[in-house]
């Protein structure tokens, strides 16, 4: 009996001590982690898409409720006017979901840039969707309200050789982003006005 009590006491004390320590560290690092996630996961893509903007899009962001999900939009200011938003879309790739950022000019509904943020595609083949600038550059100037497809599927995007599934996944992600844009355009326009 005494042995059992000792076991219970030792395990309980150890676990609660560990829980307390972790809670303290979690509290101390929470804010830093959230900022790091924005800077490193989405930051590089956002900066590339909104190249030449005069503000910091990671600070000038707003959220819109889309059904149950809250979506973040990053505002780009060009020539003194906030006329561009960057936001996320997801497509089905070869090794899982592909996350990407799409920048859209709200005046003419055209895509000004696209960048892959998170993916688990094959290194050296499908990963070119992120590392080789030729592929994402093809999306520049496309209309952001139409579905986007690779050439074999009747669209106008050249697929990465050897990575058709990845290329199709990226197009699916851009289409997904286009649908979000179509659906939320009134709210986006309203929020952007607040920046003027």
């Amino acid at each position: 009996m005494r042995e059992i009590i000792k076991m219970i006491v030792v395990l309980t004390v150890l676990s609660s001590f560990s829980g307390g320590l972790l809670a303290a560290i979690r509290g101390g690092t929470n804010e830093k982690i959230e900022y790091q996630q924005l800077v490193f996961v989405k930051g590089p893509a956002i900066k590339k898409i909104l190249e030449g903007c005069s503000n910091d899009p990671i600070i000038d962001r707003f959220k819109i409720k889309d059904g149950d999900i809250e979506r973040s939009f990053f505002v780009g200011v060009f020539d003194g006017k906030p006329n561009t938003v960057a936001f996320e879309g997801f497509g089905k790739g070869f090794g899982g979901d592909i996350g990407l950022m799409v920048g859209v000019n709200i005046n003419d509904d055209k895509i000004i840039g696209m960048g892959v943020t998170t993916h688990s595609e094959t290194p050296g083949i499908g990963s070119k969707a992120k590392t080789d600038p030729k592929f994402p550059n093809q999306f520049k100037g496309l209309a952001a309200i139409e579905p986007c497809k690779i050439k074999p599927d009747g669209g106008e995007i050249d697929a990465i050789s050897g990575a058709t599934v990845t290329s199709r996944g990226v197009c699916g992600g851009v289409t997904n982003a286009a649908n979000i844009y179509k659906r939320l355009k009134p709210q986006i326009a309203e929020k952007i006005k607040e920046f003027n």
Binding site: I33, V39, F40
Partner: peptide, 25 residues
């Protein structure tokens, strides 16, 4: 063994949180 795992798991989570906060890439 249960005690070892609790101790190890605690330090692993500490490392995980610190890595997320300071060396995110």
């Amino acid at each position: 063994i249960a005690c070892f795992i609790v101790i190890i798991a605690t330090f692993v989570i500490v490392v995980e949180l610190l890595m997320q906060a300071y060396t995110y890439p």
